[in-house]
Amino acid sequence: MNISRRRFFGVAGAMISSAAVGNAKNACAGRQPKAPPNPYGCVVDLTACVGCRTCEQACNRVNHLPPPEERLDDRTVLDHKRRPSTSAFTVINRYYSGRLDAQNQLVPTYVKVQCMHCQDPACASACITGALHKKENGAVNYDKSRCVGCRYCLVACPFQIPAYEYFDPLTPRVRKCTFCYDRIRQDEKPGCAAACPMEAITFGHRQTLLEVTHRKIAANPVRYLNKVYGEFEVGGTSWMYISREPFEKLGFLTLPHYPMPHLTETIQHGIFAYMWAPITLFAILAGVMWKINPQQMNHAPGFQAQEDPI
């Protein structure tokens, strides 16, 4: 029995460790990153944003959400950090990086928060029914008709974006920025980008945007850090940011450059390719049973077995 046990652990161990090695070798083994070939994207220029929150208002209008609770001229709303919610898919937060202006006043930086529309999204990989899906045009789309409400997407999202309608007893939805799916499908700007009076949000094809943005950074090395947040984070995102202040001082997370689903999908597809692992385990156990306990294969265990003369 010990040998079979050990052999079984060997199999299980090999399954997992092959998956783990696959992870270490990254690009050469295991899962290939996924991304639509030519998605749309947006670049938010944090040096241009003045925190007027017009984008919040436009977002709520386009997505048929109630208007923002706090009036746009109420600046106290910026005194605490907000997160996107079921009634606000985008919010503006204010950060002080420590930089002082000529009058020795702290210079604020305003950061717009919304779904990043990852190129290879964790939420879509996690979703049990495929209710979340990365579309060709770049939007990570939510289909409530498939949703079960398990909230694994909320667990998976590295940017902590999806919000859940916890007050709805039977038909709660996952709520998040839609990238104005219906608008960008017709090659229109998303609501927030169209509304921004400072033109801080540039909309376009992601690849083109990256080229333009890098030229812009190179032309203005004093105004911008040489980094586009979202170019590489979690395998790339459709929404990206440029800034003068270090991103970690503005509430941005330092994230790995590989897609979040890498390890889980490598393990899953490693074990379940052609169902080899379950089939092998079944065969081994059947072999063990046939060798050690053959009467089991002719009669169910329990009362019959006890009545059988052995």
Binding site: S125, A126, C127, I128, G130, H269
Partner: peptide, 12 residues
């Protein structure tokens, strides 16, 4: 619903 909509990438 998962019985109808299969999503093989999902651990869940």
């Amino acid at each position: 619903k998962p019985l109808l909509f299969w999503q093989g990438n999902s651990v869940l």
